[in-house]
Computed example of a mutant assay.
Amino acid sequence: MTNEDGIRTQESVRELSSVDGETAVITGASSGIGRAVAETFVADGADVVICSRTQEDVESVAEELNEADVPGSVLPVECDVTDRDSVEALAEAAVEEFGEVDLLVNNAGGSGSGGPLHEVEGDEWDGVVDVNLTGVYNVTTAFSDALREDGGAVVNTASMAGRYGVAGMGPYSAAKAGVSALTRTLADEWAGDDVRVNAVEPGFVATPPVREMLDVEMPEREGADRRIGQPDEIADTIRFLASDAASFVTGQTIAPTGPPNTFEPPEV
């Protein structure tokens, strides 16, 4: 949309940057980044399906957002992304409720207990890789038909740990590196179906576990020298990648991290 001088209008810019009217599925949405994405999308006017492994947790988020003065709506679904039957049920619930799925945000994950790689038990390795990498495969393939039918966008949550590799976080680093590689592969395979696939690699973000670990408060959203970001800042990056404003962005991994770093814990 342009005006009589051929210049884009304010309305057209806002429309491109919006997910208004879209249907989105967000995994791992009971807290932290996933919840922030849900809040951002609903405030923008999207209908959102949110899930986590515990129904009570995700229901409380949905209840709060559905009672808020926002244009979108929320459907809570209990789902374990490592269980393919559970993921298939999530896909069926989303399509039954809204008829289509335009956007998918693969956010479910967890770092595990950590420790030197030679001390990591096989079950610990399997659990971390299953939720962070295999879970992305499970959810994405379950929604492949819905996404490819009319085009759409996928945004995966990777990590700076996957870019650099972090001592004491071997399984998590490997799994998140796999998410970035899977993102590039899928972007190539699905470009012909008009589906864009991108990822974010957050640095340290003030999610509840990080705030507890580092004993910090939620940072203000100002200052370029911050080493810790807000979940809302990652949500805004995801919203951009999901919107038509990123129409020429696919197969990319965006790193919202503050100043360049090697994923070393910030001094607090």
Rank of each mutant, 00 (worst) to 15 (best):
V205E: 07
E78T: 00
N132S: 10
E11G: 13
E67I: 01
E149K: 13
A181G: 12
G115F: 07
A29K: 01
C79W: 05
S86G: 10
F248N: 06
A158H: 07
A167M: 06
P209N: 06
V49I: 12
I254W: 15
P209S: 05
V197T: 11
L117R: 01
V200E: 10
E22S: 13
R184H: 12
E201S: 15
R14F: 02
A174I: 13
P71K: 07
P260R: 08
Y137R: 05
L186F: 09
T262H: 15
I254G: 09
E233G: 06
V139D: 12
E264A: 13
A38K: 08
E121I: 00
V81C: 09
T134R: 15
G122S: 11
E97I: 01
R184F: 05
A246Q: 06
E233R: 05
A91G: 09
L65W: 10
M218N: 12
G178D: 08
P209D: 05
T54S: 15
F204S: 10
L90Q: 06
T82N: 07
L90N: 06
R163Y: 14
R8C: 00
V128F: 03
S86D: 15
M160I: 14
V179R: 09
V81H: 10
G170C: 07
D194S: 13
A36P: 02
L186K: 08
D236G: 12
M218T: 14
N3K: 03
E22Q: 14
E233Q: 14
D57A: 14
A245Y: 08
R84G: 03
A36E: 02
G110S: 12
V200K: 10
A206Q: 02
E59I: 00
E11V: 09
E92V: 12
V200T: 14
T134A: 04
S113R: 14
D123Q: 11
D244Y: 13
D126N: 13
A93R: 14
D102R: 02
L104V: 05
V179W: 09
G192P: 11
S60Q: 15
N198T: 05
G168W: 07
D57M: 04
